[in-house]
Amino acid sequence: MIIWINGAFGSGKTHTAYELHRRFPNSFVYDPENMGFFIRDNIPKNMQKNDFQDYPIWRE
């Protein structure tokens, strides 16, 4: 089962995900923001954008 949590910035998505994780044995939390941070940190300086969601690869 995959539970996809969507919502506005600061609405408690991460907190909710970790609360569900605590209650469901053998579950895990996948936070796509971690991939965004990786993309941002590994793009050449002259190609960097303010928000990693603006990179085309983020959408793939």
Rank of each mutant, 00 (worst) to 15 (best):
G12A: 15
L20P: 01
I5W: 12
F9P: 03
N34L: 15
I57F: 13
E33P: 03
M35T: 05
T16V: 05
Y55K: 00
F28I: 00
S11W: 08
N46Q: 12
G12N: 06
E60R: 03
N42I: 00
R59G: 06
N46D: 15
F38E: 12
G7L: 09
H21D: 12
W58C: 02
F52K: 02
T14K: 00
N50C: 08
G7C: 07
Y55M: 01
N26V: 01
R22L: 12
F52L: 04
R23V: 00
T14N: 11
Y30L: 08
E19S: 10
I43C: 04
N50G: 11
W4I: 08
N26Y: 13
F24K: 05
K13Q: 12
S11M: 09
F9E: 10
S27N: 11
A8H: 13
A17K: 01
F24G: 07
E33R: 04
D41L: 06
F37L: 08
T14F: 12
A17H: 02
Y30S: 06
N6W: 11
W58G: 02
I3E: 08
I39E: 08
L20C: 05
T14R: 02
T14Y: 09
F37D: 14
D54K: 07
D54W: 06
P25Y: 14
T16W: 11
R59A: 13
G7H: 08
F37H: 12
M47Q: 11
N34I: 15
W4R: 00
P56E: 13
K49N: 08
N6G: 07
F28L: 05
H15Y: 10
E33S: 04
L20V: 01
N34Q: 10
G10N: 11
Y55S: 01
H21F: 11
S27D: 13
P44N: 04
R59I: 00
I3K: 02
Y18A: 06
K45W: 14
M35R: 06
F9Q: 05
F38P: 01
A8Q: 12
D41V: 00
D31H: 10
N50T: 07
I43A: 04
F38W: 06
N42T: 00
M1D: 15
S27M: 05
I57W: 06
I3W: 07
F52H: 01
I57H: 10
G12P: 01
D41I: 00
A17T: 01
W4S: 07
R40S: 15
F52G: 01
D54M: 04
I39G: 03
F52S: 01
N6R: 02
K45T: 11
N50K: 07
